[in-house]
Structures are given as C-alpha cells and as structure tokens.
Nucleic acid binder design. Structure first.
Length: 385
DNA sequence: GGAACCGGGCTCTGCCATGGGT
DNA sequence: ACCCATGGCAGAGCCCGGTTCC
C-alpha cells in the first residue's frame, strides 16, 4: 500500500501544472487510499460445507444465494466454477453493498449476473469502492453503475491496475469531468489493463504523427473525449477503420486528421465490417437517386454519423425526403437532416405541407432545428397564411 | 430577428474465447 | 482439469440550443 501511495504522490508531482479539477481528483484519490489503509483487514467469510467435495456445488452456498434472492440457474450458466468454491464472501458483499445504499433486488441481480462478485474480500471491495469514489460524487452513483454493469466493477481483481488507470487517464489531460463521463459511460475502460489503454492511446498518437500532426497528445485526448467508447475497442478495429477512411475518403492528411478528431471520432470505433457495408450502401443509395460517389464523401465529411445509419434506415429517410420534393443536392448540402428520426421528419413535412411550404424556395434547414424552434416557426408561418 | 453553423448531450452490456496459473 | 482474468465482439440514432452570420 505504501508503494501505491507513493506512486499517487509521484503522479501528483508530475502533474503540478494541470488544471485545478484534476488536482482535486488526484488529491481525492490519495485520500481514498489513505482511508482504505485505515480500514480493518477483514478476511473473506468462510462458507465451508460439511464435506468439501471437489467438482460438486457447495450446497450451503447455493442455499445462501437462494435466500438472498439470487437467480441461481443464471449464476450457474454464467460462472459455474463460483458455485463450487468452498470459500466465498456473499454475506460480506451483501452487507457491503447495502451499506452503500443498494437494495436487496439490486444486490441479488448483481450476483446473478456476475457471480464472481462474491469471491471478493471486504478489504478488496472497500479499496475498489474508494477508487471509484475518487471519480464519482456519491455512493449512489457507483451503485447505479454497478446495477447497470456488474461486470465492469467486478471483473478484475487488480485494484493496483485500476489506480494506475486513473493516474494514466488523468495524465492524458482528461480532467475530472471527462473521467467522470468516461467511467459513467464506458466503465469497462477502467477494468482494462493499463497497458491495453496505453496501446490505444499510443495508436491514436501514431495516427496523428502519420498524418503529419504535431500535437499527438492533444489529438488522442480529443478523440477520447469525443468518443468515450474508443478505449474499450480493439486497436485492430480502430486501425482498420482509419486505414479505410484514408483510402475511401481520399482526403489530404491534414483534412483527414481534422475529420478524425472532429465528427469522425464518433464512428472511429464502429465495427469495421458494418462501417464498410454502410459506406458502400450510402454510395449505392445516392447513385441510385441521381447523386454521385463524391456526394457521399461530402456527406460523410460534414456528417460522419451518417455511417451509423443502417442501410434500411438511410434508404427510408432519403426516400421520404425525396418524396416531398427535396433534391439530392439539398440533402448533400444539409446532411444533418438525416440525423432526425423518420417519424419526426414525416411529422415536420406533414405540418409544412399544410402550410404550403416550398422546400425548393425556402430550403430544408427548417427540418434541422429543435422541436421548440420548429414549433415557433410553424406559428409564424401560419400567421402569414 | 431569423437563419445557419456548430458542437454537445444522452448512450453500451453480456457473452465468448483464450492463455496463464494452480 | 479447472478457474480466473482479460481481450474482443455484436449492433447500429436522435435531439437540443448557444453562437455567429446576414
């Protein structure tokens, strides 16, 4: 523990120049570790069956789990080995989580979905909790993430690695707000080995270098804060996607770099096959209605999330707009209209039709506004009628 | 004052495969 | 032989409003 403490202290020294929120975070991380040091060492509760047989389930444990409301068949399906263990800490876990504000159902659901949780000792739980709390504001926030994704919290037993991750991610210049968003949105990031996270960051920095960028760290930070899922994807996937963009978009390096840390960051982590498929289908759809392949690139550069749309959804939206007399050129110039749901677009076009709105004369920007602004616009248009 | 531009907010786990350790 | 820890994958949008421009 003393070693860990000194590491955090060292991290604090290293990042003396960072903004205030980050200093606060590292300070609270240090405090968290201090508190855990003071916690009483509690060995895991032993649940030894009368006859500890190998390769058979621990009957006493099964009874305990049933009493706790755990879905035993589900637990058995997920991690059968846990049910054969002779030493587990289910009571300790229940007491611990309840003290943090989790109700009975939540705890039962957590164990059902990630049985290995009951193998963690009190000391381990306390330490891990405090590390999470160095990023979150309250116990309740941690409980809600645990309820959502028990695996993210319990899959790794390496608290030292978790601490290194927090220090490493802070060192990228991600402030406490970014870290909070990261841990809330993609909690698995913090269970990755710090080495895996480092590999992704290095890949991003390499990409920046390759494209002639001069601020690789800034680039990596920008991509991560724009796409919080990037660190739970494989470097293989991200690398393949960048390579594909490079070939398919035909942009100058500097433009590609701007694209990747801008709107392109959103789709950088897409499944590579789906990305290629959606790109191909976008081109096919546009050419089938009179557009060109160049148009599809213009759309992607201005609105990368178009590649997120399934071919069916994209086709429906484009057809829906064309039926209303909107031209392909208008869609290419204003692709963000594709961002809105089909239902929303239909409703807006119905309302505008009633008021004899002419998209040819007035353009289609009216479709790309918030509901509030759109309704205000409708009122004005009806007054003019 | 209204249109256009622009970026940000939500959001994503549960399962399988595999290699290492005992 | 078994369990644990870890890496990787599937699947695939919608909405809002601050700021700037004309």
């Amino acid at each position: 523990m003393a070693v860990a403490m000194s590491r955090v202290r060292a991290a604090l020294m290293l990042h003396r120049a960072v903004p205030q929120p980050q200093q606060c975070l590292l300070a609270s991380l240090q405090l968290a570790r201090t508190l855990v040091c003071k916690a009483v060492e509690t060995p895991p509760a032993a649940e030894t069956p009368p006859e500890a047989e190998k390769n058979t389930e621990n009957k006493l444990l099964l009874d305990n789990l049933k009493v706790l409301g755990v879905d035993v068949p589900m637990a058995r399906k997920r991690q059968p080995g846990v049910l054969r263990r002779t030493e587990t800490n289910e009571h300790g876990l229940v007491t611990f989580l309840k003290a943090k504000g989790a109700d009975r159902e939540t705890v039962a659901s957590i164990i059902s979905r990630f049985p290995r949780a009951i193998t963690r000792s009190r000391q381990h739980l306390e330490e891990r909790w405090q590390l999470w709390r160095s990023v979150f504001q309250s116990d309740q926030e941690v409980v809600s993430i645990l309820h959502r994704s028990p695996e993210s919290f319990f899959r790794s037993s390496d608290n030292d690695n978790l601490e290194k991750n927090i220090v490493f991610l802070s060192s990228l210049g991600l402030d406490s707000r970014d870290l909070h968003r990261l841990l809330t949105t993609a909690p698995r990031t913090f269970s990755n080995s710090v080495e895996l996270n480092r590999q992704m960051v290095e890949l991003l920095q390499d990409i920046c270098h390759t494209l002639g960028g001069t601020q690789p760290s800034k680039f990596a930070k920008a991509v991560i804060s724009k796409n919080l899922y990037i660190l739970i994807r494989s470097t293989k996937r991200v690398e393949a996607n960048v390579k594909f963009f490079r070939e398919a978009l035909g942009l100058r390096d500097s433009l590609l770099l701007a694209f990747l840390q801008g709107s392109g960051a959103d789709i950088l982590d897409m499944s590579h096959d789906i990305l290629r498929r959606n790109f191909r289908m976008l081109q096919e759809k546009l050419t089938s209605v009179g557009g060109s392949k160049k148009d599809s690139i213009t759309i992607i550069v201005n609105y990368a999330s178009v590649l997120y749309l399934s071919p069916e959804r994209l086709s429906e939206k484009v057809d829906c707009l064309l039926r209303e007399g909107i031209s392909v050129g208008q869609i290419v110039q204003k692709p963000k209209v594709l961002d809105f749901s089909l239902e929303n677009l239909k409703w807006r076009m119905d309302e505008l039709r009633k008021l004899h709105y002419d998209f040819g004369i007035n353009g289609i920007t009216v479709l790309d506004t918030s509901k509030k602004r759109f309704e205000a616009k409708l009122i004005k248009l009806s007054a003019l009628e």
